[in-house]
């Protein structure tokens, strides 16, 4: 069970990376970033897995609770990721104003 969960997480991460590396649309780049982040968060959450665990809400009804620590920092990381994505989108709007395109290969005003 656990290997599948880890594997999925890594696959999601790789899909995100592939998206960033191969897509030219800026929005897709941001989607790729979100996917990568999703992959990492899945990885973290998986590490808190306890066989037959119950939610970490007191009182624990019938069994051992799952590890609550990964949950808490997944929550934190989600919020941070959301902030990043929001900021990236805001930047894209601004960039589109200047360049009239969202093609990442055409936004090359600064180089060398």
């Amino acid at each position: 069970m656990l290997p599948i969960s880890y594997g999925t997480a890594i696959i999601v991460f790789c899909i995100g990376l592939y998206t960033i590396l191969s897509k030219r649309n800026l929005f897709k780049t941001v989607i790729g970033l979100s996917l990568m982040e999703g992959g990492v968060l899945m990885l973290i959450t998986s590490s808190g897995y306890v066989p037959g665990g119950v939610p970490a809400l007191l009182p624990f009804a019938g069994g051992e609770p799952v590890n609550p620590l990964p949950h808490s920092f997944t929550l934190t990381a989600i919020v941070i990721g959301a902030a990043d994505v929001a900021l990236a989108l805001a930047f894209i709007i601004k960039i589109h104003r200047r360049y009239g395109t969202v093609d990442i290969d055409k936004i090359r005003g600064l180089r060398g």
């Binding site: 970490a56 007191l58 949950h71 934190t76």
Partner: peptide, 23 residues
Amino acid sequence: ANVVAAILFDYRGFDTLGEASVI
């Protein structure tokens, strides 16, 4: 009663301050 909330706001409340500051 919520262990995750206890971690977020008490044990590791400082993280939460940081996280809210990111927003």
